[in-house]
Computed example of a mutant assay.
Amino acid sequence: MLMSSVFAAARDVFSPPLRKILWKSLALTVLLLALVWAGLTHLIGLFLQGHPLSADYPLIDGIASFLAGAGIFIGLAYLLPPVSAIVAGYFLDDVAEVVETRDYPGEKPGRALPLGQALFYGLRFAGLSLLVNLIALLLFFIPGPNIIVFFAANAYLLGREYFELAAGRFWPQEDVARFRVENRLTVLAGGAVLAALVLVPVVNLLIPIFGAAMMVHLHKRLMMRRLAAGDGTGRLDARSRPF
């Protein structure tokens, strides 16, 4: 089920109906990352200008500036998950409408979240993701745990956020949480796919559109399995509690 959703999303990302959305998503993602890069570089530059060693040892100043730039570049990998959440919150309904109309034409389409609500969810997740990834960044110089913490945290966060955005088009928030918990391992595995893509340069810029399409497919397939199991209403029960 997960792999079929992954392959379907990979097909969708470069399909003509989503290509225009993809370019917009890439432009917004690159713009946000560039703004973060410029802001951090400017702050570090101001700090170095005021440091006494900068005037006495210009070479140290140059080396520090180079290392700061390289450090910011590495840090952007940790900032990509929260940035992608904001972008996904903005474009998810556009992606979902294309996927649902083309691949599930006989089913009732989802209801687009109000833009403010979608962006609120994206910003809420971005804040949590930023906090978690800053903690992971502090472990950068500890081999082993840094990658494990980074991967595990983002697998959980990305899986949860993208799935809830996709399912939120069909269910109230409390039902979405129950459904996610019922399928926690599948959703976590989907998040692991996205967390793995974060580690791949350039490809990681596709996460907002790919993640949205993948979770739309995954949610649809999970609902089909629930209906096939005998719940003709598709109503979510309260047997599970969110974790």
Rank of each mutant, 00 (worst) to 15 (best):
Asp103Ile: 06
Gly106Glu: 13
Ala112Ser: 13
Arg124Ile: 03
Ala118Gly: 09
Glu97Trp: 00
Gln117Pro: 04
Gly122Phe: 03
Gly127Phe: 13
Pro105Ser: 03
Gly122Ile: 02
Leu92Gly: 00
Pro81Ser: 02
Thr101His: 11
Pro82Cys: 07
Asp93Leu: 07
Leu123Thr: 12
Leu113Val: 11
Gly110Ile: 07
Asp94Thr: 04
Thr101Tyr: 05
Leu76Asn: 09
Tyr104Val: 03
Pro105Lys: 05
Ala96Trp: 02
Ala96Pro: 04
Ala118His: 06
Val95Thr: 01
Leu119Asp: 06
Gly75Leu: 15
Leu80Asp: 10
Phe73Trp: 12
Gly75Lys: 13
Ala77Thr: 11
Ile74Phe: 11
Ser129Cys: 14
Gly110Leu: 01
Ala118Asn: 08
Val98Lys: 03
Ile86Met: 10
Arg124Phe: 11
Phe120Ala: 14
Leu130Ser: 14
Arg102Lys: 12
Pro105Gln: 02
Tyr104Ser: 03
Val83Leu: 08
Ile74Asp: 11
Ala77Arg: 06
Val98Arg: 04
Gly127Ile: 05
Pro105Ala: 01
Tyr90Met: 13
Ser84Arg: 04
Tyr104Arg: 03
Leu123Arg: 01
Phe120Ile: 12
Phe125Thr: 02
Ser84Val: 05
Val87Met: 06
Ile135Ala: 15
Ala118Tyr: 06
Ile74Tyr: 13
Leu92Met: 11
Val95Asp: 02
Asp94Arg: 10
Leu131Tyr: 10
Lys108Ile: 07
Val132Met: 15
Ala88Ile: 00
Asp93Tyr: 01
Leu113Tyr: 02
Val99Thr: 04
Asp94Leu: 10
Phe91Gly: 07
Leu80Gly: 03
Gly106Pro: 04
Ala112Gln: 14
Ile74Gly: 09
Ala118Glu: 12
Arg102Ala: 12
Asn133Phe: 09
Glu107Phe: 05
Ala96Ile: 07
Pro109Leu: 07
Leu130Asn: 01
Leu115Lys: 12
Ile74Pro: 04
Leu128Gly: 08
